[in-house]
Amino acid sequence: MNPFELEFMQRAFVATAVIAAVAPLVGSFIVQRGQSLVGDGMGHVAFAGVGLALLIGTDPVVGALAFTALAGVLLVRMGRAGLAGDLAIALIFYGGIAVGYLFSARAGAGQTRLVGLLFGSPLNLTWPEVGVIVALALAVVVVTVVLYPKLVALALDEQAARVAGVATDRLVMALTLMVALVVVAGMSSIGLLLISAMMVVPVAAAAQVASSYRSTLLLASAIGATSAAAGLLASFYGDYAPASAIVLIAIACYLAATGWRSLVRRISSTAVAGG
């Protein structure tokens, strides 16, 4: 049986492939800025928004968007004021997941639903939910394309970008909000705790073999989408948890790229030594 003839697999494929292709676009900038874990933290905060949304009976996407956007603004302002130390950030992030569970439990949300939000449940998505994911991902792509030269300058050297006339404060805010969008877009399909892996791991894999920033972005995007498709197939045939399979395949891509790079270097050095 062709799994992609099944409608629930089609929905899962569209949702996961789109978000897994878009997440590395944003991830490349946060990796270069040494903030690889910011997406993970945003996932914790988003959970608080989901909890509150469940408690007051509104759409979890709205709650997650509101909380991650608020946290993004707060983190950037704290950073400017010199208050964004490890401890302050940890308090916000851990507070987020604690508040999220507190609200969710009070709202009577079932464990299955909570596990689905934390670790993804792409096979249970509806077409309207897929539409929201695609719309959010599209918004991230548009902002990335428009701001691309400035984001690259920011990622390479924030001070030099600022001296060159780039409005770095606003750009950092935009980047943080893009991370928030990716987290919210990915929460139903890949999960709040795993989506940040798709911002980082495909980028790390692509960086092993790419020759420029642009090619790293494009290759990372392809690795993300391929991992999503392969992970869904593994889940279909092997009955694995889909989001976990997607992330593990992305990690396998990283290991393969690292091995390939080592092999190429070894062959090159042998050729040089051999004259």
Partner: peptide, 30 residues
Amino acid sequence: VGYVPQRAVTAPTLPVSVDEVVTSGLAARA
């Protein structure tokens, strides 16, 4: 105004080509 930082400041985590570094100087009016 042009600014040249110490080289260590821009040690890239990701691959970046010379062309990309040079053109990033024009980012403000890209």
